[in-house]
Design a protein around this nucleic acid. Structure first.
Lengths: 113, 113
DNA sequence: TGCCGTTGTATTTTTAAAACTATAACGAAA
DNA sequence: TTTCGTTATAGTTTTAAAAATACAACGGCA
């Protein structure tokens, strides 16, 4: 038995716009340089990946990725500086929460090892 | 914008067995005295409510509810002492996590009011 | 100009979860 | 022994999310 903490960000319309899925997607974009390749690498439909990004960027008010279409290799996607910053902040906060909750778990459920 | 913390309990097979849904269901059983009425009150199918309870009870290894069938008023359901104890512990832990994460939020996102 | 692999958009199809339906079993009490 | 409203189970239907598909647009480059 174990307790799992999930952190989700909601916009002002109570719609969720960021969590583990978008986080992993951004990392995949960072390593592949392409939104399509990123989606493929996590077995996600491209249309879903694009929707996730548009949704998050709209809620945040700034672009997480720069997506260029056409050109040398057909184009590609990369993280904007604000995107990298947001991603780091999200992960730092999430990690802090997970760690804090793990400590609390030991307090409330001491018998579970 | 706001960050929401969700706590979910998983069994040894990585299957989730307890969270906010089951928690609310137990409260509804407590107040209605019937699993059917509890499910109705939260617009949940009875079959789903029963599945949730069976699933959780199997993972925990003890009954959360005593469900009696037949009898004076057709029967009914109530929380077992262990059920009440588990419910309280879950809620105390969840509340502690939420509170801790709210504090952390102020640290990591100070500009968001 | 034609080619390439991407982004972007729209639509259809698939899938899994949820909801619904029907029915049996139960047991106290009248 | 009949009635009642519940628990319990199985099967069907509905629904919404996810996935898949198709195709246009883009813009360096040979």
């Amino acid at each position: 038995m174990k307790a799992v903490t999930r952190i989700t960000f909601f916009d002002d319309n109570e719609e969720k716009f960021f969590g583990e899925g978008p986080c992993r997607l951004l990392h995949a974009v960072e390593t592949t340089g392409s939104l399509r390749a990123a989606a493929l690498s996590m077995n996600m439909a491209y249309s879903k990946a694009l929707r996730i990004l548009k949704n998050a960027e709209k809620a945040l008010g700034f672009p997480l990725t720069e997506r260029v279409t056409g050109g040398k290799n057909g184009g590609g996607s990369s993280l904007t500086p604000e995107g990298k910053e947001w991603l780091k902040r999200y992960e730092d906060y999430r990690d802090a929460c997970v760690q804090a909750n793990r400590r609390l778990y030991l307090d409330f459920f001491p018998e579970q090892r």
